[in-house]
Amino acid sequence: MPTKTDILDLYFMDSRAKLLDIASYLDRLDRHEGETDFRQEGFLNALQTMLETKENRTAAVLNTLSDSSTDPIEAVTIQAAYGAPQLEN
């Protein structure tokens, strides 16, 4: 089994780059005009979840970004998925 140092050697730089991409994305959104939508609200909720969760963080983030309803819907309103739940769901 790899040690923590091995995992750092394999993934630290990649994760650092992705973290900077997220920071840049947040700044980029702030710089531009207009309003965000449910996707950004979901994104920020997921970030908060990741920081507050102490284990199984990926599952916790995915759960935060999931539709939490349980019954099938009557009919398709749109075919695509957005990656974050809409509040009216």
């Binding site: 979901g42 970004l65 999931s66 939490s68 309803s69 349980t70 998925a81 957005y82 990656g83 974050a84």
Partner: peptide, 13 residues
């Protein structure tokens, strides 16, 4: 199984 936000609910169904 469904994509993204629909996966959890869809997998359960």
């Amino acid at each position: 199984t469904p994509h993204l936000e629909d996966k959890l609910k869809g997998t359960r169904l």
